[in-house]
Amino acid sequence: MARLSVNINKIATLRNSRGGDNPNVLAAALACERFGAQGITVHPRPDERHIRYQDVFDLKTAIHTELNIEGNSREEKFVRLVLDAQPAQVTLVPDDPGQITSNHGWDTLKHRSYLQDMCALFKGEGIRVSIFVDADPAMVEAAAETGADRVELYTEAYARDYVDNPERALAPYLEAAKVAQQVGLGLNAGHDLDLHNLRYFNQHIPGLLEVSIGHALVADALYLGLEETIRRYNEQLG
């Protein structure tokens, strides 16, 4: 069964919109765990517009499941945060500072040498490394040469195309997943996965270890409640 890691960025966005500490990010993360999440994901950005750097340390000392920190390792502050917080996993994402959300994976061929250095740095501290990539077999194969433990497939295109043709939407991800197995990489996935498209993805992608879901899950929780929402997402992964 693939693990559900809940991205709590949107909880932090809501908190920051009014200042103060309501909703409380740590309380939300602990509730996610209590309701069945097997991990917590955060994606801090330099302007701290949602997750604050202090949130990461608060989470690390309090949660009982895995902490996954996503972000751009070209930001020195991010690298220091990961090394100091010592999460179970760091996911390297090639974000530009002004991006609203992640919108592409690494070119692991072009940036192979750089990514090798980053993987060595984090793995030297005992932190599992996942590289965010598009569903391109060449990018997956090259990711294995960086020393990464896993890749996370960027699933926006799958979610967009699933509505019209699930089989066609899945096809490039299936090829990428097969390559990941062949080269010995663990497989994560994330971005726009939801209650409509998650089950099909999970049933057809071999070796899927973890999905990271935030925006859709938090939005569903507005209507269903957080406990019921997490139950339903886990059901899709069962």
Rank of each mutant, 00 (worst) to 15 (best):
M1H: 12
M1N: 15
A2N: 07
L4P: 07
S5D: 12
N7I: 05
N7V: 08
I11R: 12
A12L: 07
A12R: 04
T13A: 14
T13Q: 09
L14F: 08
L14H: 01
S17Q: 09
G20N: 06
G20E: 01
N22D: 05
N22F: 11
A28F: 15
A28R: 15
A29G: 13
C32L: 09
E33C: 12
A37T: 06
I40N: 07
H43K: 03
H43E: 02
P44T: 11
D47C: 12
R49A: 05
H50K: 13
I51W: 08
I51R: 08
R52N: 10
R52A: 14
R52K: 15
F57A: 10
D58T: 12
L59Y: 11
T61K: 15
I63N: 07
L67N: 05
N68K: 04
G71K: 06
N72H: 01
R74P: 03
E75G: 10
K77M: 15
F78R: 07
V79C: 05
V79I: 03
L81P: 01
L81H: 00
A88M: 14
A88F: 11
A88C: 13
Q89H: 12
Q89W: 14
V90H: 04
D95A: 04
D95Y: 03
P97T: 04
G98F: 07
Q99E: 10
I100A: 14
N103F: 11
G105W: 08
D107W: 09
D107S: 06
T108F: 13
L109E: 13
H111I: 14
H111L: 14
H111Y: 14
R112Y: 13
Y114S: 11
L115M: 06
M118T: 06
C119F: 08
A120I: 12
L121Q: 06
L121F: 04
I127G: 05
S130K: 04
S130H: 07
S130Q: 04
V133Y: 03
V133G: 04
V133M: 10
A135N: 01
A135T: 00
D136H: 00
P137A: 04
V140E: 00
E141G: 03
A142S: 10
A143D: 09
A144G: 10
T146N: 12
E152Y: 11
A157C: 03
Y158L: 00
Y158S: 00
A159F: 00
A159Y: 00
Y162D: 02
P166V: 02
E167Y: 07
R168P: 00
L170H: 10
P172V: 03
L174V: 02
L174E: 02
E175F: 07
A176N: 00
V179Q: 12
V179F: 04
V183L: 07
L185G: 01
N188W: 15
D192G: 11
L193H: 10
D194E: 08
L195F: 04
N197W: 02
R199M: 11
N202E: 11
I205M: 02
I205F: 01
P206W: 14
G207H: 03
G207Q: 06
E210D: 14
I213Q: 10
G214N: 13
G214S: 12
V218M: 13
A221V: 07
L224V: 04
G225W: 11
G225L: 10
E228F: 08
T229K: 08
I230L: 12
R231P: 03
R232G: 03
Y233P: 05
Y233N: 05
Q236Y: 12
L237F: 15
L237T: 15
G238L: 08
G238K: 05
